[in-house]
Simulated assay, not measured.
Amino acid sequence: MSGITDYLQDKKSALDARKLRLVQEKEVPHQQLKAGIRVAGRSGVREIRIRDFQIISDSGPELAGHQLGASSPELQLGVLGSCLSHITLIQAAERGVPLEAVEVEVTGNMHPLAGKPGYEHIPVYLHNIAYTLRIESSASSKELAALHEAVELACPILNLLQQPQQVAGTLVRTKQKRRKQV
Rank of each mutant, 00 (worst) to 15 (best):
V28E: 09
A145V: 00
Q24H: 07
V151W: 03
I135G: 06
K116Q: 09
R38S: 07
V45Y: 06
K180D: 04
R51C: 14
L160S: 13
I87R: 00
L153C: 02
L33Y: 10
F53H: 12
Q165Y: 07
A146T: 01
F53M: 13
L171T: 14
R134P: 02
V23Q: 05
A93G: 02
A35M: 08
I48K: 06
V28F: 07
S82Q: 04
P29E: 02
Y125I: 13
L144S: 00
V45M: 08
I48E: 11
K34G: 11
G36L: 14
T88I: 00
I135K: 11
P73G: 09
E100G: 13
E105T: 12
L133C: 15
R49I: 12
V106D: 05
S2C: 06
V124H: 06
H30Q: 06
L22M: 12
A40C: 02
S137K: 01
I129P: 13
H66S: 07
Q163Y: 12
V167I: 12
S140A: 13
H127L: 07
Q24L: 13
E152F: 04
L80Q: 08
R49G: 03
R21V: 00
D58E: 09
G118C: 13
I37N: 05
E105P: 03
V182P: 11
G60M: 09
N109K: 03
P164I: 04
A64K: 11
A70Y: 06
L161G: 10
P123Q: 03
G44W: 04
D6M: 07
P123H: 08
A114N: 07
Q163C: 03
A168R: 12
P29V: 07
K177F: 00
L89I: 09
P117W: 09
P117T: 04
L20T: 12
S13D: 13
Q176P: 04
H121T: 08
C155F: 05
P156K: 08
V23A: 14
I48L: 14
K180Y: 04
P112I: 05
R51N: 13
H127F: 15
L160M: 08
S71A: 05
L133T: 09
P29G: 04
T5D: 10
N109S: 11
Q9W: 00
K19Q: 15
L80I: 03
A70G: 14
E25V: 03
P29T: 05
K142V: 07
Y7A: 06
G108Y: 01
P117K: 10
E136K: 11
K19D: 14
S2Q: 14
G81Y: 09
P164K: 15
E103T: 13
L158Y: 07
F53T: 01
L84F: 06
K180C: 01
I129V: 13
R49E: 08
A93R: 01
L89A: 11
V172S: 02
E120T: 14
H86Y: 04
E120W: 03
D6R: 06
L144W: 00
L89H: 13
K142H: 02
A130C: 11
I56L: 15
